[in-house]
Design a protein around this nucleic acid. Structure first.
Length: 575
RNA sequence: CGGGGCGUAGCGCAGCGGUAGCGCACUUGGUUUGGGACCAAGGGGUCGUGAGUUCAAAUCUCACCGCCCCGACCA
């Protein structure tokens, strides 16, 4: 493609609406434009990247035995009502009415539609297993779309669904998909990590989220560098660091701590480490107050508390509510003498001594507090976020915490949908059985964003070659000089003939500097720069976007050098 | 849905009661041509929308709409 004939409107200044690198760069590098909040159009370069991601997904899905279908975006309400999700899905489900006032939803996911399809076709166990997927536009009316493609209202998703005879067969399919997913993300040049996730209200089954590590990620995760353990914060467990006091001291004592109501403040005053504190947080779960105790250096994980209590709604209590429950201003809550409230405590507190707690009185804390001695044994559980340095639950080595972008999720559905929608097959035993299902999603557009999030520098995108909209960026630096133009034209033809996808910057009026800046911004994996200066000595420059330095080669050697560098690039995205 | 911020040329912004501005981009001509060139001449705006206050509103008031950020939410 010649740049002079292409629609690649790069922009020099960062649009004000963008916050994170991928969003800024997708706009600046002319991959997409915004149409409305959370709704984008993809320009030619963006579309090429999307097509490459889709191609990788298709290849891996088919290799894993899945077949592609295409389901409607506009789906009748009846299907959603069958499973109860017409109600349960809430406002995120985009609803529309047709001219006859009949209800429809723009599909956010397609369990109902696929189950409906399969139940009509599935008769015998001989037809199983079935594994179907599609790549299509999905709609979710997000409360707050943000970060460009990371959380949008309309997006491309690959969604796959498997149907198996029984649990064991479903497991087998699940792990096949799991392996395919690892290959897909690797081929997209992504450093990703499957993490165990909280399966939420569905329960029973298990699920993995495929996370791309990135600071701008919305999800917090814990990872073990030694054994590969990885889990979502809601699920992660870790062995806490050691307690600072090994044995009980004397009776507890009141100390005056005027105006000091954080662990840090009181710790500084008493010269005691955070580990020796008990933080007491008051939550309201389904309208009732609950006191949650964690060690001073730890934070409460609300989801864990919610799961433990089986609560529908949960949140930190308001300041007024805290005063009501603890008889003291916020900052002085403690378990000693606390009554009328359910108390639950994080297991990391076990085995510690000489704790400092709030005194249930303004400007008072207690020291030398002992579990079980000074207040009754609470209900124990895991209620805290793992922190960096905790021991890995699998191998004991230190865990790390970080942030990730969820680019895919695999989910064992069991018979939730096949039961609700009567998706059954006739077994060898002559009886009806519900198909055992799995579902497998990949955010295609989000994967593009995640790739940029992971591969960029201060000058622009640094595409892995598997996603690079074109593999080679050919720059003609002095198009007004006939010799240079001719050499570049020739090179363009040669590279194309050799099978490379080439973006040829032949613009007659752009300066060399301008073309360099554009090339860095677009971030194509490889570039060839042909200019008068080098050509005088018979040399042109070949460069990998990820490397700082150019390699000078004679004109006749361009093709070999490009092939060599391309091979290096491909190695980086080969499973 | 709560809190905050912003809507002025394609983009980034200034102006904050009295003639609509700057930089970049765009058009034409010329000079340039290895890291977002220079000179000259141009084109482009119902100042988000609607009401109100005023002799006079981009500017003050109110309402609405849109966009962004924080939070709540997220099979």
């Amino acid at each position: 493609m010649r740049v002079s004939q292409a629609l690649i409107p790069t922009v020099k200044e960062t649009p004000g609406e963008a916050e994170i690198p991928s969003h800024k760069l997708m706009l600046r590098a002319a991959l997409m434009r915004k149409v409305a909040s959370g709704i984008y159009e993809y320009l030619p370069l963006g579309q090429r990247v999307i097509l490459k991601v889709m191609k990788i997904i298709r290849e891996e899905m088919e290799a894993a035995g899945a077949q592609e279908v295409l389901m409607p975006i506009l789906t009748p309400a009846e299907l959603w009502q069958e499973t109860g999700r017409w109600q349960k899905y809430g406002k995120e489900l985009m609803r529309v009415k047709d001219r006859h006032e009949r209800d429809f939803a723009l599909g956010p996911t397609h369990e109902e539609v696929i189950t409906d399809l399969v139940r009509r076709e599935l008769k015998s166990y001989k037809q199983l297993p079935l594994n179907l997927f599609q790549i299509a536009t999905k709609f979710r009316d997000e409360v707050r779309p943000r970060f460009g493609v990371m959380r949008s209202r309309e997006f491309l998703m690959k969604d796959g669904y498997s149907f198996d005879m029984d649990e064991a067969a479903s497991d087998k399919t699940y792990w096949k998909m799991y392996e395919a997913y690892k290959r897909i993300f690797k081929r997209c040049g992504l450093l990703s990590s499957p993490v165990e996730a909280d399966s939420g209200l569905i329960g029973g089954s298990f699920t993995h989220e495929f996370m791309v590590l990135a600071d701008s990620g919305e999800a917090a995760i814990a990872l073990c560098g030694s054994c590969g353990y990885a889990a979502n914060m809601e699920k992660a467990v870790g062995k806490p660091s050691a307690h600072t006091a090994a044995s009980a001291g004397g009776a507890f004592q009141k100390v005056s701590t005027p105006g000091k109501h954080t662990v840090a403040d009181v710790g500084a005053l008493l010269k005691l480490p955070a580990q020796q504190f008990i933080k007491t947080l008051i939550f309201i779960a389904d309208g009732k107050p609950v006191a949650v105790l964690v060690r001073g250096d730890h934070d409460v994980n609300e989801v864990k508390v919610q799961n433990f209590l089986g609560a529908g709604e949960i949140g930190l209590a308001s300041a007024e509510k805290v005063v009501e429950v603890t008889q003291a201003p916020v900052g002085f809550a403690g378990p000693v003498g606390l009554s009328g409230v359910r108390v639950i405590a994080d297991e990391a507190l076990q085995g510690g001594h000489q704790y400092v707690t709030g005194g249930l009185e303004k400007d008072v804390h207690l020291t030398n507090v002992e579990l079980g001695r000074d207040f009754p044994e609470p209900q124990w559980g895991d209620f805290r976020n793992v922190v960096t340095g905790d021991g890995c639950p699998k191998c004991g080595k230190p865990l790390q915490t970080g942030r990730g972008i969820e680019v895919g999720q695999t989910f064992k559905l069991g018979t939730k949908y096949s039961k609700a929608m009567k998706c059954v097959y006739l077994g060898e035993d002559g009886k009806d059985h519900e198909a055992v299902m799995g579902c497998y999603g990949i955010g295609v557009t989000r994967t593009v964003g995640a790739a940029i999030e992971q591969h960029n520098d201060e000058n622009g995108i640094v595409w892995p070659i598997s996603l690079s909209p074109y593999q080679v960026h050919l720059l003609c630096l002095n198009p007004s000089e006939a010799e240079v133009a001719q050499a570049a034209d020739q090179c363009y033809e040669d590279l194309k003939k050799a099978g490379f996808e080439v973006l040829y910057d032949d613009r007659p009026d752009a300066t060399a500097g301008f073309k360099f800046k554009d090339a860095d911004l677009l971030g194509l994996s490889l570039s060839v720069r042909i200019g008068a200066r080098g050509l005088k000595e018979g040399l042109v420059e070949v460069k990998r976007r990820r490397e700082k330095d150019v390699v000078k080669v004679p004109v006749a050697g361009i093709l070999d050098k490009v092939k060599e560098m391309a091979a290096e690039e491909w190695k980086l995205c080969t499973p």
